[in-house]
């Protein structure tokens, strides 16, 4: 089942000789439970592509369809709520709320939506991620790897359609990177979660089910699920 469709997506910045084609007629799709890595050098447009998919930025043209809904037609508030329910984000620098403990960080998307927390589900996630005994700790009391695991748990807590991870291992050492990637893959399998991950690290990318290469805003390989 296709969970994501990106069709002829365009995002340009500037004009004339200053024109930057951040995303240039890119198209691809993702199936449910697929783990996709988008790989490209710095400035290739991969972050822009991820932001467009996540509804954080608006394309100049093209379509993005997530679970059958065209997000390009949504108003900003609708997009925010859609994002809260359907998309989980994992960032390079974790972006945890420093004044909330790990548990509250994890359940934040659920509580923002006014829903009841599925405690069993949360326990399951945190157990898999190995942070079940860190629930009362605050982000400044955790290591980088632990913080990223909390971030992954937060991304999963609302049972989203899609997880978008922007260089999730960028701030971690190689050992921790491997651990976190392993956990990301494990949770993706366990919960049949679609994950789209950006990385410039080919080695990390190998852990994905599919690698999409992007160069100068264009997808140059891996766009189809073979």
């Amino acid at each position: 089942m296709k969970i994501l469709e990106v069709k002829e997506l365009v995002k340009h910045y500037g004009q004339d000789e200053n024109l930057i084609k951040a995303v240039d007629y890119s198209s691809f799709s993702a199936q449910k439970g697929e783990f996709i890595a988008i790989v490209g050098t710095s400035g290739s447009g991969k972050t822009t592509l991820l932001n467009l998919i996540g509804g954080l930025d608006t394309p100049d043209s093209g379509e993005i369809i997530i679970e059958g809904q065209k997000i390009s037609d949504m108003k900003p508030d609708e997009l925010t709520i859609f994002r809260r329910r359907k998309i989980g984000f994992v960032f390079q620098n974790y972006n945890l709320v420093t004044v909330l403990n790990s548990y509250k960080n994890i359940i934040m998307p659920v509580k923002l939506d006014g829903n009841k927390v599925d405690k069993e589900y949360i326990h399951q996630i945190t157990s898999i991620l190995g942070i079940e005994n860190k629930m009362k700790s605050y982000p400044n009391q955790l290591s980088g790897g632990q913080q990223q695991r909390v971030a992954i748990a937060r991304a999963l807590s609302s049972k989203p359609a899609l997880i978008l991870a922007d260089e999730p291992t960028g701030n971690l050492d190689s050992k921790t990177s491997q651990e976190v990637m392993g956990l990301l893959k494990a949770t993706s399998r366990e919960f049949n979660q679609t994950v789209i991950m950006i990385t410039h690290n080919e080695e990390i990318a190998q852990l994905a089910d599919r690698i999409i290469h992007i160069e100068d805003g264009k997808i140059v390989g891996g766009e189809d699920n073979v």
Binding site: I81, F82, V99
Partner: peptide
């Protein structure tokens, strides 16, 4: 689908971030 009236989390974050300022 896009209705949203939840106040609990914003108030909680408000309370906690207030202490940090």
């Amino acid at each position: 689908m896009f209705e949203n009236t939840n106040k609990e989390m914003p108030f909680e974050i408000a309370k906690e971030t207030m202490k940090a300022h």
